[in-house]
Computed example of a mutant assay.
Amino acid sequence: MLKSLAVLAIVTAVPLAAQSAAPQVPGQKDVSRITGGTYRTDPSHSLVEWEVNHFGFNDYFGLFGEVAGTLTLDPKNPAAAKVDVTIPVSKVVTASAGLTDHLLRAGKDGGKPDFFGPSPADARFVSNHIVVNGTEAEIHGSLTLNGVTKPVTLEAEFVGAGANPMSKKETVGFHGEATIKRSDFGITTALPFVADEVSIDVTVAFEKA
């Protein structure tokens, strides 16, 4: 009987010990981990996804990677944060080689390209003012795309902060969403069959400079 109780105690204790020893992920949704200063994007882990409806049948997705830029933060005054990022349009990718080529190919007979063209300038988003509500924020700023600058509001959410175990740098991460009209930026090919509204989904990691 005593032996059975001892075995039961050991069996019960092992998973509890394993749970207590389980490592935590480096980033935690804890604003107290954020320190003030200037942060730079981790381009390898920062992405901008776009989504547009195709012919009314379904939504199609594409990605811009290698987002570069800075974030200036003061934890005591988060509304004073500044964001300035560039998005390399020339590196757009989709699941279709043909569609990616269409986005970046030159216009017919020297005419205007259907979408971005073969050597598009980087897009750029610069914040103007920020409204903070807990771990969420409205980032009001200016987006320059295809040579046109328009106001855009990004609905952002703090995801986590901590030390990156690879780079050893303090890191903060955010997720954001916005909706733009591509016609506002002079991209009008195939309207309205390919929708005017484009949903933007942003995930960015910033490392302390």
Rank of each mutant, 00 (worst) to 15 (best):
K82N: 14
P43F: 08
L8F: 10
P26F: 07
F61M: 11
G69Y: 02
T188L: 11
V25D: 14
N77P: 03
V93C: 15
V89I: 11
H175G: 12
S127F: 02
L191F: 02
T100R: 15
R40P: 11
S167W: 06
V67Q: 08
G37E: 03
G36Y: 00
T179C: 01
T72L: 13
K82M: 15
G141N: 03
G111S: 08
R33N: 03
V148P: 06
G98E: 12
T203I: 10
V89M: 12
V48Y: 07
S46W: 04
L103P: 07
V132T: 01
G162L: 01
A121E: 13
T135Q: 11
G134V: 00
K76N: 09
R33A: 00
P78G: 02
P75S: 06
Q24W: 15
K181N: 11
S96A: 04
L16I: 11
L71T: 03
K76R: 12
V204M: 11
P75R: 02
G134Q: 05
N133V: 14
T189C: 09
K208D: 00
D184I: 07
V198K: 07
H140I: 02
P78R: 04
V202M: 05
S167E: 02
G176H: 02
F61C: 07
L103H: 12
G69A: 03
V83W: 06
D30P: 00
F55Y: 09
K169C: 06
F206N: 01
F61I: 04
K29R: 15
F125Q: 06
K112S: 14
I10S: 13
